[in-house]
């Protein structure tokens, strides 16, 4: 029986519906170069409507992480136009960026957990930053950490956790505030297959609730089995391949998850 997380159904994060039917994220002829180096992204254009689920694939060094960094506003493009939730980033005042960022969940490739904070406090950060009541923070964070199998590690600090456990903390932090857009860089790179499927189910659940996802991955098996469309990067150029209905592996995964919960 699938478990519904109240973290995702609670009222504390209900936001006014915005940009109905519009694109959550769009790139138009975006180019990016670091310093005076060559362009790592060239003429990248795409627009993802609300509720889409895309994998971002490509060989190492193809620019996947750079594209995600542009998406979560850690970098500015050298040229082109990026819009998030219908707003042109170039003309958005710096003081308004935090509100945009609060609608974006990010799973960093290197996790970027705060080492001095417990797993609980790391996951609680986005809620505390957004000024959510402490009682709500406690309830939702505990529940989500238990869901990703870290019930016994809530007070552990990241250096004492394994790579897989840290990755789950990072994912929990990215999804705790129920983002409208989730950008994940290799979110299943450090966990075993069953945990990878479990996390994919979490992403699916989010997607069903209306979150738009871009998941960068090298895991071809996962890409094939889930059948979502792909943003394929190669040599800094982007191609979009359409998805297909979820294959048997995906259904098996769901069945497996159903057994687990």
């Amino acid at each position: 029986m699938p478990v519904e997380l109240s973290a995702f159904s609670g009222s504390h994060l209900n936001r006014a519906p915005e940009n109905h039917g519009g694109d959550v994220i769009s790139f138009e002829n975006v180019g990016l170069r670091y310093g005076l180096g060559p362009e790592v992204l060239q003429d990248v254009s795409f627009a993802l409507p609300s509720g889409s689920f895309y994998f971002l694939i490509g060989p190492s060094g193809a620019g996947k992480s750079s594209l995600l960094k542009l998406g979560y506003l850690a970098l500015k493009p050298s040229r082109g136009l990026i819009s998030l939730f219908g707003r042109n980033i170039a003309t958005t005042a710096r003081g308004e960026l935090p509100e945009l960022r609060r609608r974006i969940g990010v799973v960093f490739q290197e996790f970027r957990l705060l080492r001095h904070l417990s797993a609980f406090d790391n996951v609680a950060l986005p809620l505390r930053v957004a000024g959510i009541r402490e009682s709500d923070v406690r309830k939702n964070v505990s529940e989500l950490l238990a869901w990703v199998g870290l019930r016994g590690h809530m007070q552990s600090r990241p250096p004492t956790l394994s790579g897989g456990q840290q990755q789950r903390v990072a994912i929990a932090r990215a999804v705790i505030a129920r983002p409208k857009l989730l950008l994940a860089d290799e979110p299943t790179g450090n966990v075993d297959d069953s945990m990878a499927l479990r996390l994919m189910h979490l992403f699916d659940e989010l997607n069903k609730l209306g979150t738009t996802l871009i998941i960068a991955t090298h895991n071809e098996h996962l890409v094939k089995s889930l059948g979502h469309p792909c943003l394929c990067l190669d040599g800094g150029r982007l191609e979009i391949t359409p998805g297909k209905a979820a294959g048997t592996a995906g259904r098996n995964a769901s069945a497996e998850l159903g057994k687990v919960f």
């Binding site: 935090p98 960022r101 705060l114 950060l125 986005p126």
Partner: peptide, 16 residues
């Protein structure tokens, strides 16, 4: 600066 960047990226205002 790394921790501050993380705080920024998860939506913290400068005042936070």
């Amino acid at each position: 600066h790394e921790a501050i960047e993380v705080l920024h990226l998860i939506g913290a205002h400068d005042s936070y």
